[in-house]
Amino acid sequence: MREVQITGDSIRLGQLLKLADAVDAGSDVKQLLATGEVTVNGEVETRRGRQLARGDEVSTRAEDLKVV
């Protein structure tokens, strides 16, 4: 699991995926989420605006991320 450090108290899912280079461009986030292959804390998530806080875990088909 790769840790992704954020500067504020929270970050949106779409921003995290871009920050972690899980997508090439911000516009690719919507397509990735539409596949149903992104989970947040073990549950499928399709909202790119989902707020994440430190300790949340995000999984894609390619890798697992933890917000720190």
Rank of each mutant, 00 (worst) to 15 (best):
M1W: 05
M1G: 14
M1Q: 08
M1K: 09
R2E: 07
E3S: 09
V4P: 05
Q5I: 15
I6N: 02
I6W: 00
G8R: 14
G8T: 08
S10A: 11
S10P: 00
S10Q: 06
S10H: 10
I11F: 03
I11G: 00
L13N: 08
G14P: 06
L16N: 07
L16F: 10
L16C: 10
L17T: 03
L17R: 05
L17A: 04
L17M: 04
K18P: 01
K18L: 09
K18C: 01
K18M: 07
L19H: 04
L19N: 04
A20H: 04
D21Y: 11
A22T: 01
V23Q: 07
V23I: 06
V23G: 03
D24K: 13
D24N: 12
G26Y: 08
G26F: 07
S27G: 09
D28C: 02
D28R: 00
D28A: 10
V29H: 06
K30R: 09
K30W: 06
K30Y: 07
Q31M: 07
Q31C: 06
L32T: 03
L33C: 12
L33H: 13
A34V: 05
A34T: 06
A34F: 08
T35V: 09
T35R: 15
E37T: 15
E37C: 09
E37D: 09
E37Q: 15
V38R: 05
V38E: 08
T39M: 11
T39H: 05
T39N: 03
V40Q: 03
N41C: 06
G42N: 10
G42Q: 15
G42Y: 15
E43F: 00
E43N: 03
V44D: 00
V44N: 00
V44Y: 00
V44F: 03
E45Q: 15
E45G: 02
E45W: 07
E45H: 00
T46P: 02
R48V: 02
G49N: 11
R50N: 04
R50K: 15
Q51A: 13
Q51H: 09
L52V: 12
A53K: 14
A53T: 09
R54V: 11
R54D: 05
R54L: 01
D56G: 06
E57H: 13
E57D: 03
E57A: 14
V58Q: 01
V58F: 10
V58R: 07
S59Q: 14
S59C: 12
S59K: 09
T60N: 13
T60Y: 02
T60V: 04
R61V: 09
R61F: 01
R61A: 13
R61S: 11
A62R: 13
A62G: 10
E63T: 10
E63G: 03
L65G: 07
K66G: 02
K66M: 10
V67C: 12
V67G: 10
V68T: 12
V68I: 14
V68A: 15
V68N: 15
